[in-house]
Design a protein around this nucleic acid. Structure first.
Lengths: 202, 202
DNA sequence: CTATCTGATGTCACGTCGTGTCATGGCATA
DNA sequence: TATGCCATGACACGACGTGACATCAGATAG
């Protein structure tokens, strides 16, 4: 299936590499696919692959703008909103704009990631990157560092759990609904952290 | 500093490799240290390194029994304890038994990890492994899956934030106190998730 | 005391990843 | 036509990680 013709100056080299990689990963698995295989299918050379992606995993994770967008949304959120309501607002918008309507593709990528330790590594660090970005945004809002840390961790916790729950269920409700469900469960659990709260535990 | 003598059958090869690696990492940095350098200092060969550690990073992360121990503690915890009190109990014990008294060494390792993306990757996946173990333990206790997921994520969130806060501060209070502080902050923040809670926000 | 077995280590060859460096080919612009 | 820019190619190379087989110390049996 490798192109023998002159693809060198065909447009969208990066996109061709991503397409070829995703195809091969689903055909043979991630580990069994080599970079030369990918570039052969895309009609490019190995060296060019590493000009577009820092390493083999980035062909899946590359071009993620969620941290920046989330930070901007937090900065633009009404000042009077409670911490976790800012989180809810941002997550809803990210869900709608980035994921809703791409359920199948998202599920495929999540499956791929969960099947390979090297990709799980990278996915877990991406989560950490998101936490850092959100934390910085809340500090920018004037929150004390520990509060910003915990809010950011909580927000990304909700995001990650919701994303995997949503992606794993073929008949899942809209991702915004999953987010709300996770946040509600979080509220239940946190009750026992506040002995002052006078509600009995379920 | 490389041993020229016959170290081949000297005891504790694994420990010698870890010691040599940690020394070299702090002297030259992680990325600049090669596996042959490590094995030369430990008086062994490259091949032997990879018999003891699956890859170069595992010389830092290897031999981590926290997930198993945490799972056993959860299984043994009194059935009437609220979710987050089980978490608090387990985290206190892990803090006391694994970290208290090793502040300096812990801080050094955390610094090393935070300075290198490849190690951050691995550290982030280790966190995910802990979440999975804790989640499984709560499911074993009879919790529904989503509750188990969120409890586990929350628990490990507290652990990770507390560990880094504690390690980063040379004059930190006991780690158990940091854990309690983080959990208290978590309770504050979660208030806004429960509109029914009648307390005003701080 | 010797034979044998076992497990850790050594030796060697190899494939893949990822980078440094310089050469080349298309395209735009003057 | 000349010039420069930039994406890509070509090549060499070091480091990572693995498979296969050889070797050596110590334990155990006879």
């Amino acid at each position: 299936m490798a192109y023998t013709g002159q693809m060198r100056w065909a447009p969208d080299a990066r996109g061709r590499l991503q397409g070829a990689a995703l195809d091969l990963f689903s055909e043979q698995g991630y580990a069994a696919t080599t970079v030369p295989q990918i570039t052969a299918r895309a009609g490019l050379t190995t060296r060019t692959f590493f000009r577009h992606f820092a390493d083999k995993r980035e062909v899946i994770f590359g071009g993620d703008e969620i941290p920046e967008r989330a930070a901007r949304m937090i900065a633009a959120a009404p000042a009077e909103l409670a911490h976790m309501e800012v989180i809810r607002l941002v997550l809803h918008r990210v869900a709608q704009e980035q994921f809703e309507g791409h359920h199948e593709q998202t599920a495929e990528i999540r499956t791929l990631i969960h099947a390979n330790d090297s990709l799980r590594d990278r996915d877990a660090r991406k989560r950490d990157d998101m936490v850092r970005a959100v934390r910085a945004a809340f500090i920018e809002r004037g929150e004390p560092p520990l509060t910003a840390t915990v809010v950011a961790e909580l927000g990304i916790l909700v995001f990650q759990v919701s994303l995997d729950e949503w992606a794993a269920d073929p008949d899942a409700p809209p991702m915004t609904a999953v987010i709300d469900a996770v946040m509600h469960r979080l509220g239940d659990l946190s009750l026992s952290l506040r002995p002052s709260a006078a509600e009995p535990l379920g």
